[in-house]
Nucleic acid binder design. Sequence first.
DNA 1: ATTGGGGTTTCGGTGCGCCTAAATTCTGGC
DNA 2: GCCAGAATTTAGGCGCACCGAAACCCCAAT
Lengths: 214, 214
Amino acid sequence: MTHTTGAAEDYLKTIYAHTEWQTDLITPSALAVRLGVAPSSVTEMVKKLAASGLITHVPYGPLALTDAGRLRATAVVRRHRLIETWLVGEMGYDWDQVHDEAEILEHSISDRLLEAINARLGFPAHDPHGDPIPAADGTVLRPPAVLLADATVGHRAAVLRISDRDPSVLRELAADLIGPGTEFTLSAPLTIVLADGQSRLVTPAAAASIWVTA
Amino acid sequence: MTHTTGAAEDYLKTIYAHTEWQTDLITPSALAVRLGVAPSSVTEMVKKLAASGLITHVPYGPLALTDAGRLRATAVVRRHRLIETWLVGEMGYDWDQVHDEAEILEHSISDRLLEAINARLGFPAHDPHGDPIPAADGTVLRPPAVLLADATVGHRAAVLRISDRDPSVLRELAADLIGPGTEFTLSAPLTIVLADGQSRLVTPAAAASIWVTA
DNA sequence: ATTGGGGTTTCGGTGCGCCTAAATTCTGGC
DNA sequence: GCCAGAATTTAGGCGCACCGAAACCCCAAT
Ligand SMILES: [Fe+2]
Ligand SMILES: [Fe+2]
Ligand SMILES: [Fe+2]
Ligand SMILES: [Fe+2]
């Protein structure tokens, strides 16, 4: 229906991302920070998205996606994650190098090419960071997860996903051989013991990026 | 040096394309037609490109690329053709379906991804339409070619390239199994005899799109 | 040598996405 | 309950890429 330009797609995606692993709604200022734009720019785009029926917004209040908006948002996230998976799986990228490229391609690839990539990859359910890849109908399979920083000492779990917001965290974890699927026990705050008995100290930034099974 | 936005890249590419198989310079109005924009839009962009040192232009005169401009243009053409080759070679596209997708992706893919694609394809020299793929340094290997419409009757030759400007021509030729490399003799105007003795009638539009060995 | 018409440029204006600075509104701490 | 400070919106503007209409230039035919 609506045109949904590349910039608008990024707004929708970011609004969606905020509620993917949390429950509270995003505020305009938080959105501005995430997108790296001025608050007034957010106000403007919010007006357009609300007029298109993609988000709801009461003046001075937080933002929420409508069903139509969520569908658009998950479509962009689907593209982003399939592209990341493809870059790692077929094009020789490391998982800490794919985000920026996907950030651009997610707005330019056609549906046809996306599905060709999807088929080549064997219809993957997760991207290289462990994030679920939304289905074409917007469905997202998301297991209960806890932030490692919030887990209680003694917790035995597996890494579910690692936010790719901070590339240095990804490089740090890759060097420590920690990734989605890694099993561990939290022996002390910021200290995990791996299956082979080796222990690792993770930085606070990493602990705030790693989501583990509940 | 200069930023070179997506729109500017299309201008440069189109200026370059005009002289790739012909010798005369392109005029602003011809450029406007090719790009589907108003003449006044061309005037504006021409001013910017000339200011950036990418083209030369005397008021009311034709356009010519500078060395810097040609390098930029061939870089875009390289991207376009490598992407087309990749879409056909790996992603299951037919050669008459790749142009539009490449038209967009040529502006968004990173150098790194482009080279990964190039390596996967084995560093091809030609795209699916027979167009030479410029090297990274801007070098283009271009054999002498004649338009089929201009060839003399009795001419024995091979198809070198087929312009992908008109998708219906591409579909028509694909149905007739005519493509780059096809050997034939021009037995009469618009009539060619293939190596296996079969003859084919080509439309005037096709004859104006097919370039053959001299 | 003139002149007309087509090509080109200029001019004023649009939409988009962004900005800063200046209101305005909301709210939590007193 | 009030009010300062933070969040949000409004107002005014910018660069980009485009447009149509009007002015302008140039050459080719007379
Ligand atoms: Fe990402
Ligand atoms: Fe993006
Ligand atoms: Fe093409
Ligand atoms: Fe293009």
